[in-house]
Nucleic acid binder design. Sequence first.
DNA 1: CTGAAAGCGCTTACAG
DNA 2: CTGAAAGCGCTTACAG
Lengths: 345, 345
Amino acid sequence: MKQRITLKHIAKTFNVSIATVSKALKDSHEISVATKLKIQEYAKLHNYRPNSIALSLLNKKSKTIGVIMPSILNPFFVKTFSGIEQVANEKGYNVIAIVSHGKLDKEISSIIVLENGLIDGLLISLSEEAEAKQHFSHLEEFIDNAGPIVMFDRVSDSVNTDKVIVDDFNCAYKATEHLIKTGCKHISVVSTLDNVGIIKLRIDGYLKALVDYNLPINRKIINLIKPGYDFETELKTMLDYQEVDAIIGLEEFSAVESMMIAQDRGYIVPDDISIISFTSSDFFKYTKPSITCINQHSVFMGKTAAEILISKIEQPLGTETVFETKTIKTTLIERKSTKPLVNNY
Amino acid sequence: MKQRITLKHIAKTFNVSIATVSKALKDSHEISVATKLKIQEYAKLHNYRPNSIALSLLNKKSKTIGVIMPSILNPFFVKTFSGIEQVANEKGYNVIAIVSHGKLDKEISSIIVLENGLIDGLLISLSEEAEAKQHFSHLEEFIDNAGPIVMFDRVSDSVNTDKVIVDDFNCAYKATEHLIKTGCKHISVVSTLDNVGIIKLRIDGYLKALVDYNLPINRKIINLIKPGYDFETELKTMLDYQEVDAIIGLEEFSAVESMMIAQDRGYIVPDDISIISFTSSDFFKYTKPSITCINQHSVFMGKTAAEILISKIEQPLGTETVFETKTIKTTLIERKSTKPLVNNY
DNA sequence: CTGAAAGCGCTTACAG
DNA sequence: CTGAAAGCGCTTACAG
């Protein structure tokens, strides 16, 4: 690694000032054609590239955005991230990715690092712990000091900023309704997450559907399995002691693992028990039976969030800031883990 | 967004110099306890944080690394990235993620952006196009001007730098051997990638195993499906016209999709046809039958690559640079898509 | 104990 | 047509 070439170097070799070199490279009309030519040629030959850190300091813009997600080993977040990366790159922004692993202190320390000029704006999906403790002052501090935030998926009403969400309530309602319409009466909800706003919304949507269709509510088959508890044990216990003819898995793992366990116990899917999964994975096509799921259009969600963020970053100073909450529509992808809809419903 | 507080602001409020404030905040012994105290208190109260861009410019270190991958919607790269992110964060580095989508010009333009002080070092898995065209000058330029590179998985011998790879040759040999030992004789290889070094290595390992076990080689069942060709059609044609009793999928998609297609045609897996996949996915547990695969320990690969890179970044100037190529060991995870090993082999 | 100066690499308004 | 100056936010060796 040799020394990177700078304006100073070029200035010295031609015995001109740094300012002249700077202008020459920008093809300024202030500079004579002769000097422009020789400087540009030399710069090209030596692969001169302006130092982006220096420009950041000057412009107070880093042309990079940050993304903080609870996990990256979760297909939903991977796809969202993919969407974010795409539009960021199109618009000339770099993206710094940070995984909070659901931990509040990781979230806070990351934001502190990013807060000092490193990024022009932040995309964040809240950590479980931030939601559980309702701790958001680090976000407000960021907004005050560093730039705009757009929250996606796991958001909080307490933070006044732009948001992109999935319509979790209706989405759960639709899934539940679909199960009811295919003849299910004892619909369980299974999740490995708790204390997260979206889970509450999904359960509310589920409950509403039950009420609307005059089905009884059985709290014992709303199975939020807390960390530390064994999924398999919890699920088997439920299947042993409760009547269940359908399971809505609130994330991929819960759905696919529930299906496996039920099948191992001899249940036929979907005849004995139907399965629907929140979050769509390409792999749901490949299970036996293939799994009916809700497509949350996560790539699109990522793109939308990034677009909003960048437009906020680039809006002229003094523009009145109006915050919007965009809801991404979901689709039910019908596969073989649910019974066909009865026509005469 | 208000104005971020700087040393200048603090200096002005206490009528001292910027230098004094800087030293006071570093708790320098040069400064009187009284001034240190009031300055520190004020800074804390107003949430002062040194501007990291300014520090980067000063130190010529940005404490961030770049990662360029061909794809992020591929579980192998996601896991590798996860490993990278983990150690980078432990060691206080930010990571900028860039997806090349297999395109050379995206790879080049990204490197140009990153080259100018933005990152201290780069992790890269080559794009298909860079490998196909054997174009690597952008990497050499980066190494010359910006900092160390560590290549992972898709590497090139032509670039003199550190590398972390999977032992693709032996890995394919092992997989093929396993199939032979379970009684397969007509082993096909299926991949949607071509022109990539690792694919060549895998095929070489496969061929070597066939030779060692005195099995005939049938080039017609080495099925490298080029972009634009329909996977299903290609695979069906092969199954129709060639004798095949095992398929090695060189990436997840090829394996799982091949299994589906074979099953749709009435093949029983593994009795009629065995399946092995390169790259391990959590989902392989959930297919019927579950899929035997090669675990490439991709998270570990990412961690290793990041560790090497950061050690290179942080090594004192003038340290003799010795490049190493680290090979990550792979494991065969036996599941139900292959027949059990016969004991008396 | 405090501060002026130089510098990291750049840009731009202003003089000459 | 060219350059000196000021500045982005910081640090550090050197004077006083």
